[in-house]
Design a protein around this nucleic acid. Structure first.
Lengths: 66, 66
DNA sequence: TCATTATGTAAAATATATTTTACTTTTGGT
DNA sequence: ACCAAAAGTAAAATATATTTTACATAATGA
């Protein structure tokens, strides 16, 4: 799975820390997601998508190996 | 978070076991998700949404306490 | 240039998701 | 009524997500 978190953040010009506070997670969690360290829970994905006004599929996409 | 998994399955008339095999998880995982025992990973949510031809948001929705 | 901010990284601890195994109960068809 | 299939439930084991704490590195703006 890949995601466009970093791009979305850049579009809105917000830091990882700001997004983390809005969503209610640690900054490192945002960083880990951007770096694909692990797969987020659906609750997080929904909150993120909602914050950016997009569908989950617009931000998170499946890879062949998923 | 709540979901409409059971309804989607009923619409397509497939069992938990069949959906589990398609998605690549255990039947009990499907059951646990339908019963809101835990929150699925985004990879699972994406696969499920894709299988039913819907957006993640159409199947999984946030509650106030999320 | 330099101080501050932002991001990257790591590891241990903690929390949660998922699987496996097993059994029970319900459902639906004959 | 009977029975196989489907769904429900549980608990231990396993895997993964997330947090916390800490430090390093990169980027930014004055």
């Amino acid at each position: 799975m890949k995601n466009t978190l970093k791009i979305e953040r850049a579009i809105k010009n917000i830091t990882q820390d700001e997004l983390a506070k809005i969503i209610g997670v640690s900054r490192q969690t945002i960083n880990a997601m951007e770096a694909n360290k692990y797969v987020p829970s659906t609750v997080l994905a929904l909150k993120i998508a909602k914050h950016f006004g997009k569908h989950v599929e617009d931000i998170f996409t499946l890879d062949a190996e998923d």
